[in-house]
Amino acid sequence: MTAAEQNVESLRDLAVEAAALKLLAERVATSRKDVQARTQRALDAAAERDGVERVAATLPGGETVATISLRKGETGPVVVDEDAFARWVRTTFPDEQWTETAIVRRVRPWKAVELLAEMAAAGAARVVVAEQVDETTGEVVVEAVVHDVPGVVIKPTRARTHAVTWRKGGKDATAEAWRTGALAGQLAALTAGEEEAAA
């Protein structure tokens, strides 16, 4: 066999490996998305039912290789009606240039961040406008006022998720369990035919 023929054979081997790895990557991505969703639902249910927020990942042989932990979501103020929010800012702070007019009025981004942070701290779509004092006389000209802010609601801003924390040697042990077939049941979808994988 000539060197050129060896190179062709090598290229053929690489082509098969590339095709196989592409298929495996696609199936891993699909399986991973599916198991993440199922794990999240199970963790959410366990947390609500029993207060469980983490679970050990244990191989069939009994070795714990990782911990799956629930990460709580976040709730905060979200502008749902930019126009209503901008009109409120303009009306409430008429002497400030915190809004800009284009086709619609919008709150300048830096001021929106500041106001939303105040609402996040309050846990409500509410802003306290401080009292105004006459600098000459020291007299209170305008009392402090609490405003319910239109166009903003408090709602989840980041969904609950979970994270995998590997134990020392856990990755190697998992790889070995995969190599020896100990995880064949858990990873069957990766080698199943399309009809089996879709079922």
Score class of each variant (00 low, 15 high):
residue 1 M to C: 08
residue 2 T to Y: 03
residue 2 T to C: 04
residue 3 A to G: 14
residue 4 A to H: 09
residue 5 E to Y: 08
residue 8 V to F: 15
residue 11 L to P: 03
residue 12 R to S: 04
residue 15 A to Y: 10
residue 20 A to V: 10
residue 21 L to H: 10
residue 22 K to L: 15
residue 23 L to R: 12
residue 23 L to H: 13
residue 27 R to M: 02
residue 28 V to M: 15
residue 28 V to E: 13
residue 30 T to H: 04
residue 34 D to T: 11
residue 36 Q to A: 11
residue 40 Q to T: 11
residue 40 Q to S: 12
residue 41 R to W: 07
residue 41 R to C: 05
residue 42 A to F: 07
residue 43 L to W: 09
residue 46 A to S: 02
residue 51 G to H: 12
residue 51 G to W: 10
residue 55 V to Y: 01
residue 56 A to P: 00
residue 61 G to Y: 14
residue 62 G to E: 05
residue 63 E to Y: 12
residue 64 T to A: 06
residue 66 A to L: 05
residue 67 T to P: 01
residue 68 I to N: 01
residue 72 K to I: 05
residue 73 G to W: 03
residue 76 G to K: 03
residue 77 P to V: 04
residue 79 V to A: 00
residue 83 D to R: 14
residue 85 F to L: 02
residue 87 R to P: 08
residue 87 R to E: 09
residue 87 R to F: 13
residue 93 F to C: 12
residue 95 D to Q: 13
residue 98 W to K: 11
residue 99 T to K: 09
residue 100 E to H: 12
residue 101 T to L: 06
residue 103 I to N: 12
residue 105 R to C: 01
residue 109 P to N: 06
residue 110 W to N: 15
residue 114 E to F: 05
residue 117 A to N: 02
residue 121 A to H: 10
residue 123 G to L: 00
residue 124 A to S: 14
residue 125 A to W: 04
residue 125 A to G: 08
residue 125 A to S: 15
residue 127 V to H: 15
residue 128 V to H: 07
residue 131 E to V: 01
residue 134 D to L: 00
residue 135 E to R: 04
residue 143 E to N: 02
residue 144 A to S: 07
residue 147 H to W: 04
residue 148 D to K: 09
residue 154 I to P: 01
residue 160 R to A: 15
residue 164 V to F: 11
residue 168 K to Q: 12
residue 169 G to D: 05
residue 169 G to R: 06
residue 170 G to N: 15
residue 176 E to V: 01
residue 178 W to A: 12
residue 178 W to M: 06
residue 180 T to P: 02
residue 182 A to M: 03
residue 183 L to V: 11
residue 184 A to P: 02
residue 185 G to E: 15
residue 186 Q to H: 06
residue 189 A to F: 08
residue 193 G to M: 04
residue 194 E to H: 08
residue 195 E to Y: 11
residue 196 E to Q: 08
residue 196 E to D: 10
